[in-house]
Structure formats: C-alpha cells, structure tokens
Amino acid sequence: MWDYSDKVKEHFFNPKNAGAVVDANATGEVGSISCGDALRLTLKVDDATEVILEAGFQTFGCGSAIASSSVLTEIIKGMTLDEALKVTNQDIADQLEGLPPEKMHCSVMGREALQAAIANYRGEEWKDDHEEGALICKCFAIDAVMIEEMVWANKLRTVQDVTNFTKAGGGCAACHEDIEAILEKVLAEKGEKFNPNAAPVEAPVKIAAVKAPLTNLQRIKKIEQVLESLRPALMADGGDVELVEVIGNTAYVNMTGACNGCQMAAMTIAGIQQRLMEVMGEFIKVVPATEMAKLVSIGA
C-alpha cells in the first residue's frame, strides 16, 4: 500500500465538505474515469465580493483523490476567486504533507477542478491542457507524454539527453530501459535509429571547455550562472534555490519554497551538483547550507 501521510489519511477518513453545495453557482467537473479518478467541485460564490462562501466535492477515486478534494475545499473557502486561482497543485500537496509521486496527479486534478469551476462561474470556457501518460521516472514524477514531447521538441537522442532536459532518469536510474524504449519509438517515427552512444545534444546550459583551474571569484560567478539557468525548472515546481557560500569546491545552498522540506530535495541537490560539474568541468560538492552551521560549530 502507499505510504500516505497522516494528513492524507485524516482527510480521507474524515473528509471535509463532502457532497454537492446546495444552490451552488459554480461547478467544475474534471478527471478521467478510465484512470479511475474524477471530481465534481461545486461552489457558492458571493456575487458582490466574489468570495467563495461554500465549497463541496464529489469524488470517484482513491484515497489521495478524496483527500486532495477535501483539502482543496478547505483551502479555498473564504478566498476570493482571484485568490483561489493562485492556488497551485503544490499548495494542495503541501497541505496534505506530501503525496507519493504516482499520486501527484490527484492534486493536479484538484487545481483543475477549481479552475473549471471558476471559469464556469464567469461564463468562460475552460480548456484543459491535460495529457497524462504512464509514469516513467518515479523519482521526479515524469510521465511518458512529457518525455516524448521533450524528445521531439529538442531532438534528444540519448538517456542522458532526456535526463538533462527533463530530470527523468536522474535519480535511481531504474527507468532507463523505459526511457530508451521511448527514444527508440520517437526516433523510429522520425526515421532515425536509437544509438546509445550518440553525442549529447547541447544541454540548456552550455558546457564549458575545461581550462585552467578557476579562481574562487570565477567559480562563484559560474555557480550563480548555472543556478540561474536551473531556476525556471525549480520555480515551475514551486521551489527555488539560493547560493549561501562557496568554500573551496563546496557550494552551500538553501532550498526554498516548495523545495524546502520536499522529499525530493536531496535528489534535486544531486541534480544541481551534476549540472555544476558538467558545466564547470571540475568536482563540485553541493551541500545544504544547514550543514555549514554544523561545520562551523565543529571547527569552533
């Protein structure tokens, strides 16, 4: 069985705001019955202030789908519609103290139901940009559709390319066979053949030629540059990274936003370290800044 947080269990066993809101004036219905998760969200919105007075859910789905629906209704009650539109799926997952990667789509479904309901209230048409494939990389929750799109868009050729562009395969590496299968398929569609030893596609960050050892100042500047290039990907997940100090070959960073306390933080740090080493052509160790405090106290 899944390793659900206590918060997920709490919302599953004692769901809040279950059932449809009587005299609701906004409804959003999303989900996929073939996948086994679907949600109807009903809202009662105050017409003068656009404040959500009541929210109710009806969900066909698993434990985390029901818990995500329940916590969503709790989050948005009392918000204005504009405030509610800023709620991300990460907010839903955070309120539940995290979801297993296979279940993150339950929080996405919650956010989409909210957007659909608000569009319904405002008389707009809500379009989903939703296409979900089989989960390939369980470490970073990347699905097949995402990988295929990136392979097409960026002419990726190897597993390393896919990892560089999507993070998929950058953790435990158990999915590399599946990623190769996707590469084989897409390349075949393009009339090409998969070659595991193909030269790497130029990564989003340019790989510097290895030259004379860097000065500390150059090193810090380079590290900042690389972190800057990684920032959009982190922010897409609701997180961020901040460089605190560089001592020798060790960079101390703070993971902030959604990255802070995220179960994936260690993986992300490993990914950042990998990228830094590739770009700078020297060994760099990335360590959470909290470790620096320990180091100082030991030194003292």
Binding site: S34, C35, G36, D37, G61, C62, A134, L135
Partner: peptide, 11 residues
C-alpha cells in the same frame, strides 16, 4: 483491480 492500487493508468 483498480488502477490506483498499482499506480498505473488503467484498471
């Protein structure tokens, strides 16, 4: 036999 118990997309 649900999809969710196995983490797949199909029952």
């Amino acid at each position: 036999g649900s999809a969710c118990t196995s983490g797949s997309l199909e029952p």
